[in-house]
């Protein structure tokens, strides 16, 4: 065979790493370009979970034997738990404090006036 297993593994790993890096960059662009808090958070959320997962898998393929894989998969598990929760907490905090998503209706003022007043009272 021309391609032995190692080269295939390297290639797949490179693919994963590349995808992960691309998603990271796109997340960064998203933070800068998206119009409001919630859409930006969406961009970050993608970076946090998918990109991190892809990079971790790519790294696992780089060194498939030994303790490294176990450590990396534990980190992966943790990221999958923690990141969505963190995004959830952020969004909830923002919503709780009266920040409304930017939709066509209230483009002019970022938050609904009555909601804002309510939250100030509370």
């Amino acid at each position: 065979m021309i391609f032995d297993l190692d080269i295939i593994r390297e290639l797949i790993s490179a693919l994963f790493l590349f995808m992960g890096s691309f998603l990271c960059i796109s997340g960064g662009v998203g933070i800068l370009r998206f119009p409001d808090f919630y859409t930006r958070m969406h961009a970050v959320g993608v970076t946090d979970t998918l990109a991190a997962a892809m990079i971790l898998i790519g790294l696992m393929l780089q060194n498939p034997d030994g303790l490294v894989v176990i450590k990396l998969s534990l980190i992966l598990l943790m990221t999958l738990f923690i990141n969505p929760t963190a995004s959830h907490a952020l969004a909830k905090a923002a919503f709780h404090n009266g920040l409304m998503p930017l939709i066509e209706k209230n483009k002019k003022n970022n938050s609904l006036p009555d909601k804002k007043q309510e939250s100030e009272k509370g």
Binding site: M78, F81, I82, T85, H88, A89, K92, H96
Partner: peptide, 16 residues
Amino acid sequence: EQHLILRIVSKMMIPF
């Protein structure tokens, strides 16, 4: 009570 998701996930995390 509002932070149900946070609480459950963190409770799982603490032993780790």
